[in-house]
Design a protein around this nucleic acid. Sequence first.
DNA 1: AATCAAAACAACCGCCGTTTT
DNA 2: AAAAACGGCGGTTGTTTTGAT
Length: 313
Amino acid sequence: MGRPPCCDKEGVKKGPWTPEEDLVLVSYVQEHGPGNWRAVPTRTGLMRCSKSCRLRWTNYLRPGIKRGNFTDQEEKLIVHLQALLGNRWAAIASYLPERTDNDIKNYWNTHLKRKLQAGGDAAAKPAAQRPASSSKGQWERRLQTDINMARRALREALTTLDDIKPQQPDVADGVNGAAAAGADSGSPAASSSSAASLSQCSPSAAGPYVLTTANISRMLDGWASKGRSAGAAADSPSGSSASEVSHGSGAAARALGSAFEYDRKPAVLAPDQTQLNAIETWLFADDNNNNDHHGHAAGGSGLLGVPAMGYPF
DNA sequence: AATCAAAACAACCGCCGTTTT
DNA sequence: AAAAACGGCGGTTGTTTTGAT
């Protein structure tokens, strides 16, 4: 038979996370590491389902996450990757290690989609939104054209990023790249030196990092300075906004302090160089090899010219 | 200052492939 | 081998914030 249920459906709390819950979760992950989410509710006493815990950690509490303030380069990269990959946000997020798929998805839905619609840029129009051609041959030719256009655009974007030298050696906590959850699902964790520089995109200038050690204290100080008692926030989020609730409480987080192991460990291993070379080879390969957009539509994986990547288009 | 609409964001829902019993 | 939960992903919704009138 199957496995026992991870958590009761009844008595599971929903809605915004309180600072206390965040701290409990962070403490647990600090001790046990991310994973085995089904055990989290029972072992921590959190009245949350395992799924909710994983989501909270992945999207908000995980160290090295940058939130808000998407740079032009990031924006451009997202647009191009979306054109290339469609709405595969996890795959896209793997190219922006500091961003979560949820964040990118939200940003796309609230900013970029509208912007593109307004701009009427056919080239950047998502492949998924384009009308399907009537015949397979036409569809394949169109796909090949799309791939090549997107590829050129992506290369261009990454080339631009290459020009952006890291402004700082690193943030204090030294974490650049906890990759998105989907980073290990067949997508490259990062691509080439371009992506490496991307992952260092102005760490100080951009938005807040959510749960690096320093920022725990910083944001919790802010939260505490608002005069919110921990108890008041715990079970009555209605009294405060969701964003306030999403912050933490100071003392406990400081207790985590520098002992917070995971904010010093990249959550994902450095990309394998072989993998990067494959990506670079593909990305920067002479376009002439694929310039015949209309003539070689068929041909299995060779169609896409990405044998090493194995993109499942 | 009040009201309304649009934008932004956090979290949930449902599906699917994988894993475990 | 089958059944059921897990883990992950993308879509969607609900709430809060911001800007315009």
